[in-house]
Write a protein that binds this DNA or RNA. Sequence first.
DNA 1: TTATAGCACTCTACTGCGAAGAGTGCTAAC
DNA 2: GTTAGCACTCTTCGCAGTAGAGTGCTATAA
Lengths: 345, 345
Amino acid sequence: MSELNERTERILRAIIQSYIDLNVPIGSSMVTRRFSFGLSPATIRNIMAALEELGYITQPYTSAGRVPTERGYKHYVDTLLKEYSLSMNKAIVHELFHRLRGIEKDLQRLINETSKTLSFFSSYLGIVTPPKSEDRTLKHIRVIKYASNKALSILIFGDGTVKNRLIDLERAYTQRDLDKITNYLNISFGGISLSEVKDRVAYQLSRESIICDRLIAKSLMVCKELISMENEDMLMEGLTGASNLPDFADINEIKDILKAIEDKHLMLKLLAQVDSSEGVQVFVGLENIIPSMKKLSMVVSTYTDGMDARGTIGIIGPTRMNYKELIPIVDRTAKTLTKVLSESQ
Amino acid sequence: MSELNERTERILRAIIQSYIDLNVPIGSSMVTRRFSFGLSPATIRNIMAALEELGYITQPYTSAGRVPTERGYKHYVDTLLKEYSLSMNKAIVHELFHRLRGIEKDLQRLINETSKTLSFFSSYLGIVTPPKSEDRTLKHIRVIKYASNKALSILIFGDGTVKNRLIDLERAYTQRDLDKITNYLNISFGGISLSEVKDRVAYQLSRESIICDRLIAKSLMVCKELISMENEDMLMEGLTGASNLPDFADINEIKDILKAIEDKHLMLKLLAQVDSSEGVQVFVGLENIIPSMKKLSMVVSTYTDGMDARGTIGIIGPTRMNYKELIPIVDRTAKTLTKVLSESQ
DNA sequence: TTATAGCACTCTACTGCGAAGAGTGCTAAC
DNA sequence: GTTAGCACTCTTCGCAGTAGAGTGCTATAA
């Protein structure tokens, strides 16, 4: 595919990697010093001029070194993703597993810990969404009398998660009434996937005969609400290790990341773009998706809960982040998470 | 109490308020320009020299303006807290109520929203702990069969919160068995405060006759675990609005705050120091409590859930934060939260 | 006694300038 | 095709000089 030959390719990578390492415009002699291509600075200069022509790198000002453009980063990341053998530090692999093992029973905590872990290893923003609710099954429903005219509805899902909500009742029901409702709901919706539950609830609500029984109608409404709010609910983030952020030269980088935290809604929009079929994906330059996120990139992957439900994990950091190190980390974290969740089934 | 006369006092306040506003060492003529004390710079200078002698202000270098010391801040905050009439912007009061009203049914969300709100108004770190678990009552316990040898235990509290946990059973029990257990647990612990539940669980576990029934023993163990983990669980933070942080001159301020987020454990230690009997309290210079938190201060208050349980809310920010504005905000937020929670009872 | 004006002094912040250095593009030679 | 040499560009750094804000001290006025 490439318009670049093997050698030019290698030099482009050398420039980008150097820039990521040093965060300083890279000149021709810098390249010859750090890498041994067996070429003189003059030759590198010619090649750099060509790369600039093609839009992979650019000069901040005349007679300064070169800095990667967004296009350059994209190309660099693509070649990284093509190498299957992304090597990883054994210690990190071990640490990763150690952090996530043992809390598989508490999905909320597991998600929390995963996001912290991603953040810890990257020093950037770690994000994790829970397995997509549509794919999960509803195992059991309970409605428990709470006060004279209040009841607590509890939804238990196939993966062990529990959702609950207090509901107001227009009159006092006995626990026996509630048990009847519980029974009805379990027969109607027990053991089927949430997406189907949604359909059935909608259908039931449209049937007149049911509407007559106001408690059942109410329960259906609550079910609907609980299921739909599910999605928004559990997105977690962390900025652990931010204190040892690699000399964050640009305060605005930090500001941008902090801004990202503020609006979960936008984050979800971003993550909705992730294609679950592939492995690790990288989005360079998020401003195409969210204008305020200039100079930020995202490395994401997906995991499964051992059944069908898929969730997303990732890192958001400056465009100039260390992809070579972070891509394997995201990849490995997703795989570890899948493994931990599968074993708990 | 004061070793300062009325006039000196007013000038000290003028200096500190100016420093907070401008973040620049304050000189004598600066004071005369911003305030009209009817005094010449020379007089102010004499007073400043006296204040420096007493340790309330200091000079970064010879012939620079003065900067408040930690002692100065403490004194300033004390005088602020003594004024009962801390005026507040009506719009903020309204916005505050608007943000918290309507979600009183979901304590987790309410806590989350409160911390976001504090963060939004202050641009610093907002912290909220849930009502102290010891003070809450255990309303109801359920044990539901989940899989052949797994059960889901659900604890419902007086304030509508719900805690749950999957437990492994060493053999398969029928739902009827589980109902028996549920019944036993409800009779033993229903409607009493958590601190008492703790005692009774401990006592029951020590009795041999109970140990014989292994499921009951197991349930007791789970109860114990669920109750004790309660505390650690729900501390929330936010750094919303951090993007419009008042020209955070010192990157380390931000770093310190971020570091604070990292270790929830330390935060809890900090909050444990808060005396619930008073209104708003201010801790200037947190490094006495947590060494890493240099140059940070905390403004806290407590709220109640309308019954007996107390929780803590507050802001952590740089020592040089705008106390005059933030103390009323924390105060008001605590009161609003109490009000919202009380009405939902 | 207390407040103020004047004055000499101190220290920082800013500015301009020159030298050093890193990097470039171009050209000619290998 | 590659490289050495060279003139040129632009930034960075250090240094000196200056402006300005602020101080403490002293003498004086109220």
